[in-house]
Design a protein around this nucleic acid. Structure first.
Lengths: 206, 206
DNA sequence: TAGATTGTTAATCGATTAACAATC
DNA sequence: TAGATTGTTAATCGATTAACAATC
């Protein structure tokens, strides 16, 4: 499916398109246009058309895009027409919240395990999961073949956890810890530290 | 302080520099260089120097940057040499987690209020806060002069909440709801939906 | 058909990188 | 001094936009 070399910045916009289409679908809308999407997303219509055209011809001149069809195509492209299992590391406030979060359903993901190294937390329940001992993490992830993980441990431990996840075969890491983690070529990382997003905004305030 | 028109993409990297400096400072490192930062961040040394040079001359040829000094400068530029109060809307899993999160301390932010519209939640405690009735939100935010807020409500209510926050005078919104919200010119929004970050990674997996 | 909107091209705009003189 | 690293310039690279023929 991934034909040409698509710029990562384009890949990063596809989830926004898919999300907007899902909202339109929720509202029983059946067709949309690049202009309609543009108005909702604050992205130019030309850019949306250009981005989509990298992957195929999904629209019809004069009428635009069929929402269900485009959702299906984008889901396929983003590989979320299946369900990816996720391992969560860290059963603190953030780890517990994502483990209980209902928002992954129908968007391609499902939490299946949560780990912590604190003996007081191991064995307790978080949502519907029993917190497992981080000492068994690598083996458990390997055995289950999990490829996606979230790091929600303190900054001081995050790089060590990332190293273990890589060793266990994880290929995509969402990192909530407040530092940049380094991983080998071929492993993907996205940073989700809320403070960097806040700082990016307060720059503009007085 | 904001002299020239700095590209937003540059502004967005400053928090990453500040965060890396804080980690180095934690490790008792006192000086760094653009190369040292580059290796940790996966950003080129030339770009780091160029970004910083937009705001002043912070380094010394031959030796690099004094970490404490550069931290102070970046804190000032990002306006986090003060503490911004934050209102959280939504006392579900995500809202409760951020309200309890300890990671804002010393990075320029402090949660001061949390709202929900569910009568079963109003009056209960989340961390050290009592959940307030969302019906009084606009008045409470106005009275306190809060300028920064986080949205952690279901998608269906997020735009209405954003409209209220804007009415209350909020100028920066961190949005955890899974949709793009629209705000007037002059109000900043950052999106923190974890699923869009995950989808951006699974595209590359097989 | 007439109106609307796509997919795509070429032009513009902006961001990144390489290189190096200045200098600590 | 010699070595290292900055700040900055010019060149390169890449992304966005405007425009329009094609066509539903």
């Amino acid at each position: 499916m991934a034909l040409k070399n698509i710029p990562d910045i384009v890949v990063g916009r596809l989830p926004l398109y898919l999300r907007a289409l899902q909202r339109m679908h929720d509202a029983n809308q059946t067709v949309t246009s690049s202009q309609d999407l543009a108005a909702r997303l604050g992205i130019s219509a030309a850019q949306i058309r250009k981005d989509l055209s990298q992957f195929g011809e999904f629209g019809k001149q004069g009428t635009g895009y069929d929402i269900e069809y485009l959702m299906n195509q984008l889901s396929q492209i983003l590989k979320v027409n299946r369900v990816w299992d996720i391992a969560v590391v860290g059963a603190g406030d953030i780890g517990s919240a994502v483990a209980r979060y209902q928002g992954f359903t129908d968007r391609g993901y499902r939490i299946t395990m949560i780990f912590d190294s604190n003996p007081n937390k191991i064995g307790t329940k978080v949502g519907s999961f029993v917190v497992q001992d981080a000492a068994h993490m690598v083996a458990a992830i390997q055995k289950a073949g999990v490829k996606v993980a979230m790091i929600a441990v303190p900054a001081a431990n995050a790089q060590a956890v990332a190293d273990e996840l890589v060793k266990a075969g994880v290929q995509a890491i969402l990192n909530y810890a407040p530092l940049s983690i380094n991983v080998p070529e071929g492993v993907r990382v996205q940073h989700a530290d809320p403070v960097t997003l806040l700082q990016r905004m307060t720059y503009y305030l007085d």
